[in-house]
């Protein structure tokens, strides 16, 4: 009986620590990612807007003759496929 209660307390404690750890990880991640987002992505975004570079086409362009763009995907040398880009 006593053993059981001890065990319960112990696992409860362990789970508590684990949950606490998870929460901390999420917190740190969020803080770091927020920093990266507002500094890294934010600055890039300002530069992109200043240089009027459009990264995504968000609007229709009724006068354009076509929306097809060249892809030209064909067989490439073997080395190219080792690359992740």
């Amino acid at each position: 009986m006593k053993m059981d209660t001890l065990k319960k307390i112990f696992t409860g404690f362990k789970n508590g620590i684990k949950n606490f750890g998870n929460i901390i990880t999420i917190l740190i991640n969020t803080v770091l990612l927020a920093f990266v987002y507002f500094v890294g992505v934010g600055v890039s975004s300002i530069f992109a807007k200043l240089s009027r570079k459009k990264l995504l086409e968000l609007k229709l362009s009724k006068q354009a003759p076509t929306y097809w763009s060249d892809l030209g995907l064909k067989k490439k040398p073997l080395e190219d496929y080792y690359r992740q880009f």
């Binding site: 991640n29 987002y37 975004s45």
Partner: peptide, 18 residues
């Protein structure tokens, strides 16, 4: 590119997907 173009609206997805 999505995140840069749509800054700061994409913050939530940035944090959840990164």
């Amino acid at each position: 590119s999505q995140h840069i173009e749509l800054f700061p609206y994409s913050f939530k997805t940035f944090v959840s997907s990164m």
